[in-house]
Amino acid sequence: MSTGHYWLVIGGVLFVILNTAAGLIWLERRMLALWQDRYGPNRAGPFGLFIVLADTIKLFFKEDWIPPFADKVVFVFAPAVVVASVLLSFTIIPFAPNVVVADFNVGVLFFLAMSSMGVYSIVLGGWASNNKYALLGAMRGASQMISYEVFMGLSLMGVVILSGSFNLSEIVAAQKNGWYILPQCVGFFIFLIAGIAETHRLPFDIPEAESELVAGFHSEYSGMKFGMIFIGEYMGITLISSMVVTLYFGGWLGPAFLPPVIWFVLKTFVFIMLFILLRASMPRPRYDQLMEYGWKILFPLSLVNLLITAAIKLLI
C-alpha cells in the first residue's frame, strides 16, 4: 500500500465515521419519531437535517463546565478515552478490499482490546465527577461491560475457528462461499447482544438509566465533553454494526452490481437501524436481570456454541 493511499484511507475513514456518528443523531431522532408516529426534527433544513449542524454548534458553544468538586484531570481525560478507543477499533475494519487502515493479523483481538478500553471512560468519568449518581452509573457500567466482554470474545471465536484467522480481511474473504450468519447464528446473536451491551445502548443503558440515575456516569458532563461521550456512543453503534457485518454478513461481499463499499455501508446501516429500533421498542431491564441474563444464559450459550463449532470443525 502506498503512503498516499494509506493517508487517504485514514482520512476517509475518519471523515466518514465522524460524519456518520453525527448524522446518526439526526437519523436516530427521525427513526424514533417514525416508530412513535411523530415527525422528529423537521424544521432545520430539509428533513431537519441541519439539526446535526445545530446540535454540533450548540455542543461546541456550550459552557464547558467542570464542577469544582470534580477531579479535574481525570474528568477531562475520561471522555477522550471513549472516542479514542472506538476510533482505534475502526482501524481494523475492512470497508472494502484494500480499504482498511491496518490490516492486522490479530484484528479481532485488537478490536476486543480496544472495545474493553471504553469501560475506562465510564469508570473514570463517573469517578471523577465525584457525584453519587455518576459513581453508581460507573459501577454499573464497569460490571456490565466486564461481564458482557467475556462472551463477546467467546462468541467471536466461532468465526475465528471457521475462518482460521484473526485477520478481519481474511475473515471477510473466507465468507465468499457463505456468510457466517448461517453456521454461527447463535454466535451472531450473542455477539449482537454483547455488542449492544458494550455500547450501553437501550435496553442495556443501565449505566445511564436516566429514570433512576439522572444521567448516570455523565451526569456532570456538559458542553463538548458531553459531546464526546455522546458521539462516542454513536461511533460505538457504527463500530458494532460494522463488526457484525464483517464477521457474520460477509463484510463488503455482495453482488457485483454495487461496489463493495456500498454493500458494506448498506449492511451496516441495517444494523444501525436495528439498534434504533431496539431503543424504540425495549424497556430497560433491571440491573440484576441484566447480570443474570449475561452470566446464566449468554455465557454458557457462547461456550456451547464455541464447543460445537470447534467440534464440527475438527470433525470436518
Binding site: 417514525l34 408516529d37 411523530r38 415527525y39 429500533l277 424504540a280 421498542s281 425495549m282
Partner: peptide, 17 residues
C-alpha cells in the same frame, strides 16, 4: 414488540405541525 414498533412506521403521524 420490536415488530409491532417497526410496523408503526406505516402509521399516520399524530403530530400537529
Amino acid at each position: 414488540s420490536m415488530w409491532l414498533v417497526f410496523l408503526h412506521m406505516f402509521h399516520k403521524r399524530e403530530t400537529y405541525q
